[in-house]
Design a protein around this nucleic acid. Structure first.
Length: 618
RNA sequence: GCCGCCGUAGCACAAUGGUAGUGCGCUCGAUUCGUAAUCGAAAGGUUGGGGGUUCGACUCCCCCCGGUGGCUCCA
């Protein structure tokens, strides 16, 4: 929640009743009430109201910090998606040691069963109070509040400017943990002073905390940077540079498989596949407006024979150029150009993160040029196509956002309304629930962002569908209509996976490195018990290769247990064991990476089976 | 970019300012052993780079490079 929102509705809270599991637990009554007082009832059942627990815990943390470091100034401390934080202004950095001390002090406060009480006071009175206490950040917040009254919450002598609500008393926190310390700008603005933020989480029982800590362990285990190295998928190198990805053989196999699938499906969906250069003359970027609107993300131009060229941060101008290479008729539309286009964008060093945020990446980009009357159908098509592609990779849950007109925009209000409604209508036709992100559209048009949810229910921004009024105008795009006159086409940008790099990173974490068979770099490892089985194993290998199955052989003079362990760690879906029995019966024994011993079968039966899985993209 | 933390062999990690080590992996040798680690040997390092303090620096200080947790931004 934005800090401004956070305090915006301070005035609406005059008194608070708290119910837990339907039973009235507490009424927090203010000492003084403005004339128009009312009672707000908050009902929550145990951790259903976890934000309230988290918010209350952040107060307790701030209380503990003030106890231990009286000179620290407190800023804000809200509940967030996973836990809470509080920002502090303290000259010396907090150390991990300090975290332990703070935790210890928090436990003492919790034990005291301090009641959370609220009171409403005059804003001016509050300002004086916080000014006297030296709490300059609270004063700054207070000064922005329009109302005459504000609410304060107190717990054991720690008083904070706060809208509430809170748990009845500190003892309701049964388990908590402080997780990390990080820098954060006051009010999120880098022009402001950097404060120290402590993150934490809390629960009303210990088991849930343990579960959460296990979840964090699982997140660590799935980290694509760790798995990327262990499985030979990708790397980055100091010699090459930050944010630039080397795709190793196993990663490259997965990428190629994704690309082949992507291209085939695009051809089926009547897209034309393009290839375009990585650099273009600076003039082009001037014309497209990128130089004006996007230069912060672009690299310095290079000089080629006295002409300035620029590394491409986007593919659109190239596709537009191809559109313009001929006169277009209304009969041709929609024209759908798709490209796995590699772009380079400057990203600040601090934001780079594995495959999730890089400086060179390949977008699964497409630009659709259509008539106004086709826009709804096209968006619906794209939406269907997106959901199909995503579900193929096991993503069936999404958060969808519709971003509307920002303050700085190009195009007519009429166009904005029309296309925003088209996006809305498509979402509603598909019966997809979405949230509106007001003012978060791109300057050139509204967009739909789809955040996919992975196996751990974490959200990732990948797909985006954007309507563009800017480029058709800047490049003066036209088509000849049935009336014989020139018309301006609508342009839609879309990326389904977003970028191959980020999508790959998400895939790695989603599957925890255990890719489905069709994506697995190595689908089968054939392993022998003893050296006398090598010949038979080689025959099996040859047949599998001929069947287009990605197989490897392990003929080493090692124990079978060792070979199994190694292949299992590499997350190879099928292990084929070959010993005396298999040779004499002319079959193979199958073991899966999850440890399941499937049994002994004729090779052809296995091939038929695995091919079926691969063809069905399982 | 900013704040904090980190940088030691391919990987994971040790080493109160006093000779740089362990495990895994790699290489070699032995073992031919049926469902997650056979035994042994050897190789492998200007401790990210530069400068300083010190008789002596992996260790302390400064600058740079890179990574990392966040802030902001985003595919």
């Amino acid at each position: 929640m934005e800090s401004s929102d956070y305090y915006k509705s301070l005035h609406s809270l005059n008194a608070l009743a708290i119910r837990v599991d339907g039973k009235l637990k507490d009424i927090v009554s203010p000492d003084s009430l403005p004339p128009q007082s009312s009672v707000q009832v908050i009902t929550f059942t145990s951790m259903e109201g976890k934000e309230i627990y988290w918010h209350s815990t952040s107060h307790i943390m701030a209380h503990a910090v003030k106890d231990l470091f009286p000179d620290v100034k407190v800023a804000i401390g809200p509940a967030i998606e996973d836990g809470f934080y509080y920002d502090f202004d303290k000259p010396e950095p907090f150390t991990p040691d300090d975290l332990e001390k703070i935790e210890k002090r928090m436990k003492e406060i919790i034990k005291k069963k301090n009641r959370f009480t609220s009171r409403i006071i005059q804003k001016d009175e509050a300002i004086t109070m916080f000014q006297n206490a030296g709490e300059i950040y609270k004063v700054e917040l207070l000064e922005e509040i329009a109302d005459d009254f504000v609410s304060l919450y107190d717990e054991g002598g720690f008083t904070d400017l706060c809208r509430g609500p809170h748990i009845p008393d500190t003892s309701k926190i049964k388990a908590f943990k402080l997780l990390s310390i990080a820098g954060a700008y006051w009010r999120g603005d880098e022009k402001n002073k950097m404060l120290q933020r402590i993150y934490g989480i809390s629960f009303d029982n210990k088991e849930d905390l343990d579960k959460y800590l296990i979840f964090l362990e699982e997140v660590k285990k799935r980290d694509h940077r760790k798995l990327g190295r262990e499985l030979g998928l990708f790397s980055m190198s100091d010699d090459i540079g930050s944010g630039l990805i080397l795709w190793h053989p196993n990663g490259a196999i997965i990428r190629r498989t994704i690309e082949d699938f992507w291209r085939n499906e695009h051809v089926k969906a009547d897209y034309k596949i393009l290839y375009t250069p990585h650099i273009a003359r600076l003039n082009l970027w001037q014309k497209s407006g990128h130089l004006e609107f996007y230069s912060d993300n672009m690299y310095s131009p290079m000089d080629i024979d006295g002409v300035a060229y620029e590394l491409k941060p986007m593919n659109c101008p190239f596709h537009i150029n191809i559109y313009q290479s001929e006169l277009r008729s209304y009969r041709e539309l929609p024209i759908r150009y798709a490209e796995l286009g590699t772009v380079y964008r400057y990203e600040r060093s601090g934001v780079l993160h594995g495959l999730f945020r890089v400086r060179g990446f390949t977008q699964d980009d497409a630009h659709i040029f259509c008539r106004e009357d086709q826009i709804e159908d096209e968006i619906l098509n794209i939406l269907n196509f997106t959901l199909f592609i995503l579900s193929t990779f096991g993503f069936d849950k999404y958060d969808i956002y519709l971003s509307t007109r920002p303050e700085k925009y190009v195009g007519s209000l009429q166009n904005w309304d029309k296309s925003t409604n088209a996006l809305k209508k498509a979402l509603e036709l598909k019966n997809l629930s979405y949230e509106i992100d007001p003012g978060e559209g791109v300057f050139y048009g509204p967009k739909i962002d789809i955040k996919i949810k992975d196996a751990l229910n974490r959200s990732w921004q990948c797909s985006t569908i954007q309507v563009d009024f800017n480029n058709p105008e800047r490049f003066n795009l036209v088509y000849r209509g049935s009336d014989g006159k020139e018309h301006s086409p609508i342009m839609i940008h879309r990326a389904l996976m977003g970028s191959l790099e980020r999508f790959f990173g998400v895939l790695i974490e989603h599957y925890a490195g255990a890719f489905p068979v069709w994506l697995s770099p190595v689908q089968v490892v054939i392993m022998t018990i003893a050296e006398r089985h090598s010949e038979f194993a080689s025959e099996v290998y040859k047949i599998l290769k001929e069947s287009d199955i990605r197989a490897e052989m392990d003929l080493r003079n090692e124990k079978i247990g060792y070979k199994i362990r190694e292949a299992t760690i590499k997350k190879v879906p099928y292990l084929l064991l070959i010993g005396d029995k298999e040779v004499s019966e002319n079959c193979i024994t199958i073991r899966k990476r999850n440890g399941e011993n499937v049994g002994t079968f004729p090779l052809q039966e296995f091939i038929k089976n695995i091919k079926e899985q691969i063809n069905n993209r399982l």
